[in-house]
Design a protein around this nucleic acid. Sequence first.
RNA 1: GGGUCGGUGGCAGAGCGGUCAAAUGCCCAUGACUGUAAAUCAUGUGCCUCACGGCUACGAAGGUUCGAAUCCUUCCCGGCCCA
Length: 374
Amino acid sequence: MKNKIIKTNHGIVTAPFFMPDATRGLVKFLSTEEVAEAGIKALVVNTLHLYLEPGLAIIKKAKGIHKFMNWDGPILSDSGGYQVFSLIHKNPKMGKITDRGAIFRSPSDGSEHEITPEKAIQIQFDLGVDMMVCFDDCPPNEYSREDIAKAVERTIRWAKRCKIEYLRQLKKRKIPDAKRPLLFGVIQGGAELDLRERCTKELVKIGFDGYGFGARHVDKEGKFLDKVLKFTADLIPDDKIKFALGVGLPEDIVRCYQMGWDIFDCVIPTREGRHGKLFFHKKNSPLLRGVACRRGMTGCVKDFYETINIGNSRFASDFSPINSKSKIPELRDHTKAYLHHLFKINDPLGARIASLNNLEFYSELMDKIKNGLK
RNA sequence: GGGUCGGUGGCAGAGCGGUCAAAUGCCCAUGACUGUAAAUCAUGUGCCUCACGGCUACGAAGGUUCGAAUCCUUCCCGGCCCA
């Protein structure tokens, strides 16, 4: 399996790579310098969140999202499809989805907004990102087959509109081909293979730089949808970027990589870090030794990493370094007992250090699988 | 010295005759988190028992009552007010 090279307006990155979610223009609790220090190459921001706050006027004045958040590497913007729909599915009062687009209320002030496929693309151009994502209809996998099928058709229609708007914006903004941002379609279809197939084929007809796996990749019980992920990855042309949106746990990333998925984003390292869970490579990790697990990583997932909850009382007087092997001085020089203390008194420094640790773990994980699982 | 209000679980603080092992919040313990409106959320938290159930508890000691954290008496401790 060849590792793809992705050229963007803000640098070249080699897949596979992991992008932390900087949804609102930041990786929570971290500065962009710290994110880079953890080995992160690219970030994901969210169209919708940035559109609401601080709003496009500010971002335009700042001359784009890169300058605004002081991140010079590649940035991918998620379209906001997932957010609008999870908002509405959680609470139907929060909005309405029609063929035209989605009308929703801002959770922060209740104000009403509409986002259409065209508008989502316009916003992403205004943000000035390197990779953008089509606005999609993203129902939960538990919905009926009929509902999922409807969402697939709508996602396809919307993808066409996104592509048209994308081409229109390129022309209007006089962006040369070499400078154009990449555009990704999103494949829906829940756990129904034939729907995934239909969606993929239709999106490929429209033509995108990459294709994302939409909706969740695990079922209600958190069980990984192996078949669906593999099936879908195989349908996407190999010269296109395969984006596993929202993936995931370390073992899920490894599995997806083996299936052919190239790029990943997830809240896990940062959110769980904020909640006190730290990820570490295991001493005899097959990944650290550069050895691939022949049966697929699923068979030896438990062998390659471990987590701790730093809030557990057993760390109150554990004076070992947080991570003696880290490249980040703070993680080598601070003890677990100190980090435990920071969490106990709920100081943001704890969330920061834990996020840093987990991002470094994810970066190293990506390097290991890049080198070890070819 | 006189008056007055109060003393409840690790802390704060409800309860003011039975449905009270005692609200609620915090602390504490454990868990969850997968295209982030989650620095969040869930569960547990007197003791014994797998459980049914039992035991000990609302400052202390007595008392009233079928029954008291809740009423009465005395004592101890604290706040405030008056001398």
